[in-house]
């Protein structure tokens, strides 16, 4: 019951926020709604029993990436930008194609019902096995044991991104 209410609340908020991100004229407003969406998504993670991801989403996405976004928007704040046409010329085509994509994917989900053996996608999911360890410990174990090489590669990726961002940001190289 609570779970359902929470799910529909967060889902609605996420989708609404997403639509507003795309339609807002002012980039800061877009960013605010993107933050809303990200927080709502974090809420969805909670309904999925992924507490660690909930926190990671807020710390990294909201507290890190979005701060960077807002920072840059403010640095390049142009009043002119507000009076320019916000959508490009391919809008209608792009919109149509996107809706086609949406319809296709929705159909795929809907069709899965008839293909599945026992409609597994639509049944309630497996109850997660309750372990003594919390979600955080389990993810930590996975990250540092099974996925240790991807983890290291990700850290190198971050390092490269860091260097790249610094180089890009430099006034004179």
């Amino acid at each position: 019951m609570t779970n359902e209410i929470l799910f529909y609340f967060f889902a609605g908020l996420a989708v609404l926020g997403g639509v507003l991100v795309v339609t807002m004229r002012n980039a800061v407003h877009s960013a605010v709604f993107l933050i809303t969406t990200l927080l709502a998504t974090a809420g969805l993670y909670l309904t999925l029993n992924a507490e660690f991801l909930f926190v990671v989403q807020i710390i990294l996405y909201v507290g890190g990436i979005m701060v960077l976004f807002v920072f840059v928007i403010m640095l390049v704040n142009l009043d002119v930008a507000l009076h320019q046409v916000q959508f490009n010329r391919q809008t209608w085509v792009a919109g149509l194609l996107s809706f086609a994509l949406l319809a296709e994917l929705l159909a795929a989900v809907a069709l899965a019902r008839s293909y599945g053996e026992e409609n597994w996608l639509f049944a309630a999911p497996h109850v997660p096995t309750v372990t003594a360890e919390g979600n955080t410990e389990q993810i930590g174990r996975l990250l540092f044991q099974n996925y240790v090489i991807p983890f290291e590669i990700a850290s190198i990726l971050l390092l490269v991104a860091l260097v790249g961002a610094v180089v890009m940001g430099k006034k004179r190289i």
């Binding site: 710390i59 507290g63 701060v67």
Partner: peptide, 25 residues
Amino acid sequence: DMNIGLLFIFAVSSMGIFGIVLGGW
């Protein structure tokens, strides 16, 4: 009593930045 209590506080306080940044903007 959250099992991620400390991270939760950390996350929430990192959201506080927006109050400042957006207010300034």
